[in-house]
Amino acid sequence: MNILVTGGAGFIGSHVLEQLNTKDDVQVVVYDNLSSGAISHVPERMELVEGDVRDNQALEVVFAAHSFDAVIHLAAQTMVPFSVAQPVLDCQINLGGVLHVLECCRRYGVPHVLFSSSAAVYGDNPNVPLKETEVVMPTSPYGVTKMTTEQYLRVYHELYGIDATVFRFANVYGERQGEGGEGGVVSIFCKLLSQGKGVTVFGDGRQTRDFVYAGDIAHAIICGLSLKGFHIINVSTGKETSLNELIRCFALAVGTQVSVTYTEPRKGDILRSVLSNAALKKQLHLTPAMTLERGIAKTYTWYKENQ
């Protein structure tokens, strides 16, 4: 199987490449502008093409030179605050980029696109755990681009027969994560604690998130390569974890009590967030395997050794 992974040198992409690299029957081309990714994340046997998804001509060259069986599209602008400050640029990267990829898939006969969407499409919805059938109501330009891309994928499937699998990620964490994207609280805590500093929590720490390990995300994506048709699937643990529980896991990883400063809640912060993973279990027969305690320990150890 020949696969193109856009954004493969980034955080989640690095976990996808790591797992694909164990498969002898898979050939991978990575397309990444390296704005947040790193060459070191790309295994030696994989071809790396440095380019931007906004550059349609550069994409055309890659598609023309290969016969891809699938595209895993991870390249994106992932920071919600950035999208609020610069919605036009956010749109150019996230929507313009995906349209360039989809058009290349249409012209060069690529049968399947797998897309990294987000819990951000749901907005501030109290009907937790959120199922894929919920009405989407994003509250940021970033969420709007994810929601819109999902609809483009549906239409490209219906009009042009391209199979499309949408994965809505919960709060992803793991090794090689930056501090700016979704789920960045884990990497922020890693940085502070590795420097011997305490952490700050906005509110009382009882707000919840659904923290899912990046390796479990990558496993779901790879299992999704076999799907046909159009699918939307949450990738989550289905468990609510409070920030106070997250801090307890960090205390175990660090080996000492964590100093916590509680301050005023931030306006607009979501109190509860958890996604149903019933569809993930039903369609891909998967349940994320990594426990939060073990995942935080792995992530903290990596961060301390590499940063």
Results as ranks from 00 to 15, higher is better:
162 I>Y: 14
114 L>I: 12
149 T>Y: 03
117 S>I: 10
155 V>N: 09
118 S>F: 02
122 Y>H: 08
127 N>T: 03
147 M>Q: 09
158 E>G: 11
133 T>D: 14
131 K>T: 09
154 R>N: 12
91 C>A: 07
140 S>K: 00
124 D>R: 00
107 R>E: 14
82 F>E: 06
111 P>C: 12
121 V>W: 11
116 S>Y: 02
141 P>Y: 00
140 S>V: 00
83 S>M: 08
78 T>F: 14
155 V>C: 13
144 V>H: 00
152 Y>P: 11
151 Q>T: 14
83 S>N: 07
154 R>P: 07
151 Q>E: 14
107 R>Q: 15
149 T>L: 04
79 M>K: 12
135 V>I: 04
104 C>V: 10
110 V>H: 05
93 I>W: 09
86 Q>Y: 11
121 V>Y: 07
151 Q>K: 07
101 V>H: 08
140 S>W: 01
138 P>G: 01
152 Y>I: 08
145 T>S: 03
103 E>A: 11
135 V>A: 10
79 M>C: 13
90 D>N: 04
121 V>C: 06
145 T>Y: 00
129 P>W: 03
103 E>H: 14
113 V>K: 06
162 I>K: 04
89 L>Q: 05
79 M>A: 15
129 P>H: 06
133 T>L: 15
105 C>T: 09
97 G>V: 04
117 S>T: 09
111 P>N: 09
128 V>N: 02
117 S>C: 12
109 G>Y: 02
127 N>E: 10
80 V>F: 12
107 R>F: 15
126 P>H: 00
97 G>A: 07
155 V>T: 11
93 I>V: 14
113 V>I: 07
77 Q>A: 15
102 L>I: 13
97 G>Y: 02
100 H>F: 10
122 Y>A: 05
136 V>E: 09
98 V>Y: 11
131 K>G: 15
106 R>T: 10
156 Y>F: 05
118 S>N: 13
141 P>T: 02
154 R>Y: 13
141 P>D: 00
81 P>I: 09
137 M>I: 04
84 V>A: 10
104 C>M: 11
108 Y>L: 06
120 A>P: 04
123 G>V: 01
147 M>D: 03
